[in-house]
Design a protein around this nucleic acid. Structure first.
Length: 342
DNA sequence: GTTCCACAGGAAAATATGGAGG
DNA sequence: CCTCCATATTTTCCTGTGGAAC
């Protein structure tokens, strides 16, 4: 049933990228000068998780390597390598220069000097999750090395910029910026279909089931593929021919728990109190919510704003709204009903 | 049927936020 | 440090809906 497990693994780069033509062209154009042997600008790629930032970056560099002989790529995940030393170490490691480097005895200057002396082929360095760097000045150091071109990946531009010093900020801002959005439902379905085509036997999963996955993943391609992988490996473990709805439900519920926590973290303090109120007293009418809210907070927002909060939380699948105008009530999402198709 | 009420949610104005530049 | 600008959030104002009371 699983023909090629690699296709469903995190970090897999497909042969074709779906629905990202504009971003693809934009990022490719940044590295156009490299084909002529010239240095390239820094590229900044931002967008929410699962929007395809890493995938696009890897895809573009791989395709460039097919066209240009004298070019190499280094991928560094800054979440795992969050110190300056570790980023340099990873990079030198990829250059094969780490044999005699020891943590304590080798000063940072020495590392930079080695990178400056590097005279091999031009190299594109992908710095993934660059907003996790404890000391973003590495970006500045790398910037000064013109044999290295940088792709800098981050969730939000502002968060990356906030702990960066002025010189670096202005350099980053003048660099090419590729902004990526969440995928739409249909786009996610296309992506899943492509993965199924390459990785699974055709009858393993139905289009309806794929649509269900796309629904649970809320625009996050990484999550969607994760659900598909969990369901497929569950089916393989149980020696089944197809993915059952039950297996799918289980995989989707796990994924939604993650998503739920992530949404909760993204709420402002005011929104959190509104959520807590509903959680404590559900179900509640809007006026009851507002009464509780004004009672708990010293600087309450207006009713209209709270309505926007509620609307947003319904969109995030944190709350459900039941009923029309007059008799509407808000309640928490019933986790037993999560798998109900919408 | 008409009126009233509580509510949904759009549009635009007002205000807060955060960085750039002097 | 302050001012200006861009952006995001909040408020104000508004129209439309459906149930309940009249």
């Amino acid at each position: 049933m699983i023909r090629d497990a690699r296709v469903l693994r995190a970090g897999f780069v497909p042969r074709e990228i779906e629905h990202r033509d504009a971003e693809l062209n934009h990022l490719s154009s940044v590295f156009e000068p490299i084909k002529a042997g010239d240095p390239a600008d820094t590229a900044l790629v931002t967008g929410p998780s699962g929007a395809g930032k890493t995938c696009l970056s890897k895809f573009v560099t791989e395709r460039l390597r097919e066209e240009v002989l004298a070019i190499e790529t280094t991928y560094i995940n800054c979440w795992r390598n969050y110190t300056r030393f570790r980023v340099f170490y990873q990079l030198l490691d990829d250059l094969g220069e780490t044999i005699d480097i020891h943590r304590q005895s080798t000063p940072h200057d020495e590392l930079i000097a080695r990178l400056q002396n590097y005279d091999g082929p031009r190299r594109i360095v992908i710095l993934d999750e660059a907003d996790q760097l404890e000391d973003p000045s590495v970006l500045y150091d790398l910037h000064s090395l013109n044999r290295f071109a940088i792709i800098c990946i981050a969730n939000r531009e502002t968060e990356l910029m906030s702990h960066v010093d002025d010189r670096l900020r202005s350099r980053l801002q003048s660099s090419e910026h590729i902004r990526m959005e969440k995928y739409h439902h249909e786009q996610l379905t296309d992506i899943l279909q492509a993965r199924v085509r390459w990785g699974l036997d055709p009858e393993v999963i139905t289009d309806d089931q794929l649509a269900t996955i796309a629904n649970s993943a809320a625009g996050d391609a990484r999550l969607a593929i994760g659900i598909l992988r969990a369901a497929a490996s569950g089916a393989a473990r149980e020696n089944r021919e197809r993915i059952t709805d039950e297996l799918l439900d289980r995989a989707a519920t796990d994924a939604q728990a993650q998503l739920h926590q992530r949404s909760l973290d993204s709420l402002t303090p005011h929104q959190q109190t509104v959520y807590d109120i509903v959680r404590a007293h559900e179900p509640l009418s809007p006026s009851e919510i507002y009464e509780h809210y004004t009672a708990t907070v010293d600087d309450p927002r207006t009713k209209r704003t709270v309505r926007t909060y509620l609307q947003k939380m319904v969109q995030y699948n944190l709350l459900v709204a039941d009923g029309a105008s007059r008799d509407r009530e808000y309640a928490l999402i019933d986790s037993a009903a999560v798998s109900t198709p919408t």
